[in-house]
Design a protein around this nucleic acid. Sequence first.
RNA 1: GGAGAGUUGGCCGAGCGGCUGAAGGCGCUCCCCUGCUAAGGGAGUAUGGGUGUUAAAAGCUCAUCGAGGGUUCAAAUCCCUCACUCUCCGCCA
Length: 425
Amino acid sequence: MLDPQLLRNDLEQVAKSLAVRGYQLNVDEWKQLERRRKSVQIETEELQNKRTTISKSIGRAKSEGENVQPLLDEVSAIGLQLDESKELLKKIQAEMESVILYTPNLAHESVPVGKDEGDNIEVRRWGQPKQFDFEIKDHVTLGERNRGLDAESAANLSGSRFTLLTGEMAQLHRALAQFMLNQHIQNHGYKEYYVPYLVNVETMRGSGQLPKFVDDAFITEDERYLIPTAEVPLTNLVADTILDESELPIKMTAHTPCFRREAGSYGKDTRGMIRQHQFEKVEMVQIVHPKHSFQALDEMTGHAEAILQALELPYRVIVLCTGDMGFSATKTYDLEVWLPAQNTYREISSCSNCTDFQARRMKARFRPFDNQKTQLVHTLNGSGLAVGRTLIAVLENYQQKDGSVLVPQVLQPYMAGKTVMNQLS
RNA sequence: GGAGAGUUGGCCGAGCGGCUGAAGGCGCUCCCCUGCUAAGGGAGUAUGGGUGUUAAAAGCUCAUCGAGGGUUCAAAUCCCUCACUCUCCGCCA
């Protein structure tokens, strides 16, 4: 949620800034709503004040045995007027809320202006794509051996966009998640959390998934939502709280499944386990002092990079342009890992600074040391990393001519010391 | 799933229709006194919104006693619905 104050004082600038993101704010409509809101609110409050004042005097007059009828008459007229005024105010406020809840965050000035993913800018690369002297296979082909990666069974169980992993594949998958978590808690200063996978509407709204993106989420019969990312429960842990400045920064990590409808992505990434309704992710979330959020974004991106580096997977870092950023983000770095079979880099992590956008929705504040007014915190989230896609990257980058796969050194302790996997059984 | 009890400020806890944004205590902040491992006295101490302002502040004002609705001139206090917590029973990894 944007700062209503900003919308009031600097509307033209905000509209311009939103336009760069591809969002058209109806300036005239907003101006008018704002004008009406102001006059109606003032009127309502004045009536409210009058009523309270008279009501109190009724109490006093009564206790002194005076005749209160004239006062009663006066106040009942006010009551009717007040009801009307209140009703109108509610309506206007609801209208304004529906605009503001659908309005994305403003992009940071350092974010490149652009229309779509074609305008994203590469920031740096790490590692050299390996040269293979044999014909390489993609993860689907590699996974077919021993039925380690079994899309057909998954489809029979659940439908398209699900994957079944068996044997060493399942083990590698688990090893990756464990490894990532351990890195973050041991080397990067995060605390591990185990969180609910079903959350309520308020929680989804707090981090910005609702109301705009209802169609992306799975909802249960009793109106809970399957989390699309651990960002949702983790970030909302500070909803409605006033933290002490000394508690900042808060660094949290969790390994969870993520559930996404993937509505509107028909025909995209249909082969293999790139885009699934259910996938695992290790997520990082930081709650920080507003002064430090951009520094924290760089650090968090580094934490995600550290995983790829430890796995020796080549990747590049890109900064998303204004048109490609997510709803709540003010700046986002994507990490793209090298997939030899696709001969390209594919997204494996996304790290965003949401500034006070989520915090305002959630009412997440802190009290500064000097004990003045409370301030909104800044929130950040990043994948560290998407487990399924990391599995794909490992398979494809570590494959050998015979279809077996070398186990990255850092994962070997998690694989019972195994150095080679996916051999014919 | 059934039965009952509860939900008040940072915490504990009173209030059960008007003078209560809320007694009292604890905690915290500041000041004074005393001086030694402690104590005493005084003052202050919720959050959010609006208005105001060049910006801010003061001031004025509204809302909030789990949430939402209702009754009433007036609700923390009465009524209804829901959520959550606790206890007992049932079921269960």
